[in-house]
Design a binder for these strands. Structure first.
Lengths: 264, 264
DNA sequence: CGTTGGGTTGAGCTTGTTCAACCACCGTGG
DNA sequence: CCACGGTGGTTGAACAAGCTCAACCCAACG
């Protein structure tokens, strides 16, 4: 099953929320026509942007700029000076911690609407943030973003909620990695992925794998070979079907979720 | 090495910060002499209480009450209706997630000054909170605590910082459990413990184990036998010495920390 | 003084890792 | 157009890390 990143990604993008192409133009103070992309941004309804009406949204938007990354490009790197933080608009980012000897733990997958690159220690990023699909994101200037939060209590609230959710997800993740067997881990991972996909309006049947085996293995604390074997185990138990491209059909979501100890 | 919970705990308590015994009395509005224990509380300087001057501290204190728990008693249980949240004053609490089949993952050890029991979903606690030493804590009424936070932006700030720290610790923990070998995990655990102890003014030489092997195993995602073997491995490498009670001398903190991949 | 709870150790087993071969797919350059 | 190498995935065989089961020890306690 040799799937290129390109084809994997093409399938995924095909079903993600449509990108804003021609947002309505608005007139700025200086009389120049300038569209505010937020008006049609699919991530507008998520966390920090959610409570913002037009003026404040515009204010926030001007603290940063939108950029794009190709798969395998880094949005930020551990150890480098902490620059902007990112709100993902489309695509998926893997946030990971690398050990000196090359081992890596993926800490979280960041989906559209979520924020990453926020953690900094001694003025440096602590984790790597790598695009695993094509990614668009708003990159916000860190100190101005924080100042904005302090001026806007409702945004601070949204930020606190976001932190809480992140915390819950990592705790879940820890329990999975600490307690489950390889097959259970993969089962819970796939259930989680399916839930995340449906929440973000991606298609779930089939479910297009956003990442390669080695990413899954770094997420679950296993080796790629073990992931591969776990896949075939799930296939033989008729819980999933593996397409010849890299998409998956979950035949029995309930049993799959139960096998993963309902951690999704 | 049969160490009773009593002796383990006695040793630990011996060196923890002294408890307030007779805080200065103050006069309340109604003219009754009433001491505010916070004035001498060793956890006063930590997170939510830190920014509070006398009046607000008193206000917060009156949202709850102080209680004590013996080792192996639960402050809160997953699935039961979400009651108060707790700020630990002395002792250590293990917060854990249990799987239906009895497997358990300890999510965090909560030290004095820290808060636990905060997470709730659908009005229920999500985790178990178990005292592993004698514990004193302030139990705060949940909704009134949240209201208090909303009235006091500086406290909200402290709460956000606390969340951030918790998040970092869990991510660290996940990386340890996901990537390190059993001996490495124990090494990093002991380094972490030593750092936490010295931060809280507990003695570090010798370092008194606050918990039994089975707790350590549930923290690190291993079995008690593996923990035991890892201990003897570290001992044979002369990184630590095991006393016949359950205290540990870290002979070579630097090498120990390095063996744990400097995750402390 | 027997019982209980916690810790250690050994022997054998299971799970997951390592190493290697192999395949399918894709992009590149004769 | 085909030969080629590179990437990603699967599978097998040998191996090792960690788990299971059991025996045993020690200290505390009734």
């Amino acid at each position: 099953m040799g799937v290129s990143a390109a084809s994997r990604v093409a399938l995924l993008v095909l079903h993600s929320a449509p990108q804003p192409l021609r947002p309505p133009s608005v007139i700025t103070g200086r009389g120049i026509a300038k569209p505010l992309p937020c008006l049609t941004c699919p991530a507008k309804a998520k966390n920090v942007c959610k409570p913002l009406e037009y003026d404040r949204q515009k204010e926030l938007f001007q603290l940063g700029h939108q950029s794009k990354w190709e798969p395998r490009q880094f949005l930020f790197r551990a150890g480098s000076p902490a620059g902007p933080l990112f709100k993902i608009i489309s695509g998926i980012v893997a946030v990971s911690k690398g050990l000196p000897d090359g081992r890596r733990q993926i800490i979280a997958l960041v989906f559209p609407g979520d924020i990453c690159g926020y953690t900094q220690i001694n003025g440096q990023y602590v984790y790597d943030g790598e695009a695993i699909t094509p990614v668009t994101a708003c990159a916000f200037d860190r100190s101005r973003f924080n100042a904005f939060i302090h001026r806007n209590p409702d945004v601070a609230d949204a930020m606190a909620t976001l932190l809480q959710e992140k915390l819950e997800r990592v705790r879940q993740h820890l329990t999975i990695v600490g307690q489950l067997t390889s097959t259970e881990r993969l089962a819970s991972f796939l259930s989680m992925l399916a839930r995340a996909y449906s929440e973000h309006g991606f298609q779930v049947r089939p479910l297009v794998m956003p990442m390669k085996r080695s990413d899954v293995s770094e997420y679950l604390g296993l080796r790629t070979e073990t992931i591969s074997r776990a896949f075939t185990k799930l296939r033989k138990q008729r819980l999933i079907e593996l397409d010849d491209d890299d998409s998956i059909i979950i035949c029995d979501p309930i049993r799959l979720s139960r096998l993963g100890n309902a951690m999704d």
